[in-house]
Amino acid sequence: MNIFRLAGDMTHLMSVLVLLLKIHTIKSCAGISLKTQELYALVFATRYLDIFTDFISVYNTIMKLIFLGSSFSIVWYMRRHKLVRRSYDKEQDTFRHFFLVLPCLLLALVMNEKFTFKEVMWAFSLYLEAVAILPQLVLLQRTKNIDNLTGQYVFLLGAYRAFYIFNWIYRYFTEPHYVHWITWISGLVQTLLYADFFYYYFNSWKNNVKLHLPA
């Protein structure tokens, strides 16, 4: 564990907590894409298949349980909770996430570290995580005024993977056999997808104006 990875995990945890705070306290999921939340639940479900077989550390297991539990409960809230679901913008959240899942699955069948079920699922979860934010970014561009919690959620979600990139650079130089091209490329693509959001988010913070993405 290094400071970059810890910062990344804590930022990722904060993004989940901000979203749960928004949904649980004000009972609203306005501006949040259910498609992205479903994709994240799938990412964690396919990434953490080894949660009960390979024990890494207490920290690792606890964090996996938190990410699995929070992502599925957010999907449940947005689909089932009578108050929260009313604030879900079904008409605007129309990104067909099937067209993200299928290419990632096909790519994982071709590009993986080993052609085993777990390794293919692991590669799939990395490719899917890289693009899972797209429905959310599309929804943000359609949603005129983005509320602060939603903006903070997306910002933290993008920042966590940026910290991971520093973690991969650090581990590459400090651990001899540490090479994971699939993780590195997926993580880089994922972070680049946030580039324009970061630009507008930073400007809205600098000029102290409401976050507004150009259509």
């Binding site: 990875r5 080894d50 890494i56 550390s57 690792n60 964090m63 996996k64 570290e113 651990e175 056999h177």
Partner: peptide, 10 residues
């Protein structure tokens, strides 16, 4: 730390 190929990251 874990052997190289074990996925020790979240």
């Amino acid at each position: 730390s874990a052997t190289p190929d074990v996925k020790d990251e979240l």
